[in-house]
Design a protein around this nucleic acid. Structure first.
Length: 232
DNA sequence: CCAACGATATACT
DNA sequence: GTATATCGTTGGT
């Protein structure tokens, strides 16, 4: 975890965004642990970034979390949906990463129940994954290293390929609209707006192997379950 | 008062 | 399958 904290404090936000792909995100709720791999995210590089809430060092009550320590959880709502971001850079530099897609791993039943959906629709959008993980507004300003909503670097996976794309939903932001600040695991079915033909069998993950070179039993099980549940 | 870092339903090739 | 319309809340001017 120390390594992660250093990453958030010292590396460029785009580098952190890439490193978050495959990172395991967990929320410990009274009903159980909910979690999965981050597969889609966007970097927001305020104060220069015209699409960032912190553009021009704007500091209103809503945005105040962006000026806190790296790892601070920044939540905001739009069109009735709550969106989760993690703040990067040393305190006072208002940059962050929005989490846009999650491949569910633990607590899938609870997430499906929460969403009233199965398959990719459970968590292939920023508002969707917040609902799936049951992230409450009270986590605003808490730390993604120590709060009930936290990263688990020990469980992270490695993407085979990373896509760099323009961010979604930010028209009329000049050059910032087209800038490739959205990062995603190539071939993963939990990306926003992915084409069916672009989905890869292995979801875009580098294979994990045991010391004997065989595929990990847990991976085999999960891919079998994925086969069954994924209706694209 | 209006624009916004969405999601969903509905309407169409 | 893809495009558009509408829902809807909140913050900031």
């Amino acid at each position: 975890m120390d390594e992660l904290m250093a990453l958030f404090a010292t590396q460029p936000t785009t580098t952190i965004a890439r490193a978050l792909l495959g990172m395991y995100l967990e929320h410990e709720t009274p009903d159980g642990k909910l979690g999965g791999y981050i597969v889609d995210c966007e970097a927001y590089l305020g104060p220069d970034d015209l699409a960032a809430h912190s553009v021009g060092m704007r500091n209103t009550p809503r945005v105040r979390a962006m000026y806190q320590e790296p790892g601070t959880i920044y939540l905001y709502t739009m069109h009735t949906h709550r969106i989760v971001n993690f703040i990067t850079q040393p305190k006072g530099i208002p940059q962050g990463i929005m989490i846009r897609g999650l491949e569910p791993v633990d607590g899938i039943d609870l997430m499906e129940q929460q969403r009233q959906k199965t398959g990719p629709d459970v968590a292939n959008g920023p508002g969707k994954l917040v609902q799936a993980l049951q992230i409450p507004a009270e986590l605003y300003g808490e730390s993604v290293f120590t709060s009930p909503l936290h990263l688990v670097p020990e469980r992270r996976r490695t993407p085979k390929g990373i896509l760099a794309l323009p961010r979604i939903g930010i028209p009329n932001k000049g050059e910032w609209t087209q800038m490739p600040l959205r990062f995603a695991v190539a071939g993963n079915p939990y990306l926003t707006n992915i084409r069916k033909a672009a989905v890869q069998q292995d979801h875009g993950w580098l294979e994990r192997r045991n010391s004997d070179g065989e595929r990990n039993d847990i991976d085999l099980l999960r891919s079998a379950i994925n086969e069954k549940n994924l209706r694209l």
